[in-house]
């Protein structure tokens, strides 16, 4: 009985959180697209988001490509289908692993940064200071960051896909030499726009959700240093969870389109 009451409470809290984030998102659409636009700040944030995650995303993608290829080989060899290796690996990289891994890394790297940054700005009254300086802090801080993550994530995913495919090429080459051209010919023969487009689209939504959740947690940070830590932490946890949930939804939707 006590346990169910506790569960009821946390379920209620979760629903409130979802509702709050929903409202925050609505506010983004209401306030984000009025003049004057903060172009300079948007560009700056795009730079921050892209540049700061580039090396981490690159290294991880390279290793994923490598590992995935090495691990898939024995299974394919068993069925005598080793020559399918580039095709199989590229499809799973582009459709699923590239976007999801990149999004998770960015949820950790960018989400926590945004959560902590806005959180400490809230706690030290910098957000209030902006407001009394005739600036809409929501527009200046939140809108710019959400736009930046939404725009940059697809680019990061394309970058990650490229590096991962290169990693995969190297792994194919460990056993049995395959030329660069032959490998990529096979890859591009298999890949279709219907693999690429949904993957880019969903990374756009991943970026959006990472930005919104990071900003929401930071913007509504509780007072004190503990509040800042909590904001950064929840930003990562909730954003990562949402990436998986969105991915699940995205898979269902693309499936529907395939059936048509």
């Amino acid at each position: 009985m006590i346990q169910t009451k506790g569960q009821f409470q946390s379920a209620k809290r979760f629903l409130f959180l979802v509702g709050d984030i929903g409202q925050f998102t609505l506010r983004f659409f209401r306030e984000g697209f009025h003049k004057p636009f903060e172009w300079k700040e948007i560009l700056k944030q795009c730079g921050e988001v892209g540049y700061r995650s580039l090396s981490l995303v690159g290294v991880t993608a390279f290793i994923m490509g490598l590992v995935l290829t090495i691990q898939s080989r024995p299974t394919l060899v068993e069925f005598g289908a080793e020559s399918w290796l580039p095709a199989m690996v590229s499809v799973s990289l582009i459709r699923e692993i590239g976007p999801v891994i990149t999004a998770l890394i960015c949820a950790g790297k960018i989400g926590s940064r945004i959560g902590a940054e806005l959180g400490s700005m809230r706690v030290t009254e910098q957000i209030d200071a902006m407001e009394v300086s005739g600036t809409n802090p929501f527009k200046y801080l939140v809108t710019t960051r959400v736009l930046a993550t939404s725009l940059m994530l697809p680019l990061l995913v394309i970058f990650a896909d490229t590096i991962a495919l290169y990693g995969s090429f190297l792994a194919v080459n460990i056993k049995g030499a395959v030329s660069f051209q032959l490998f990529f010919n096979q890859v591009f023969e298999t890949l279709e726009f219907s693999d690429l487009i949904p993957s880019i689209l969903k990374s756009f939504f991943f970026g959006f959700i990472i930005g919104i959740i990071g900003c929401y947690m930071g913007y509504n940070s509780k007072k004190g240093t503990e509040g800042v830590g909590k904001s950064a932490n929840s930003a990562v946890v909730v954003a990562s969870l949402m990436v998986f949930i969105l991915d699940l939804i995205a898979v269902q939707i693309t499936d529907l389109f395939y059936e048509l």
Binding site: S120, E125, M130, S133, G134, T135
Partner: peptide, 24 residues
């Protein structure tokens, strides 16, 4: 408004801090 905690923008230089309200 002078904030109790100063509320200087810590990602900006002193010049940018002062320019901010003026530009806005």
């Amino acid at each position: 408004f002078l904030f109790q905690s100063n509320a200087l923008y810590d990602s900006m230089t002193i010049r940018e801090n002062l320019e901010f309200p003026l530009r806005r």
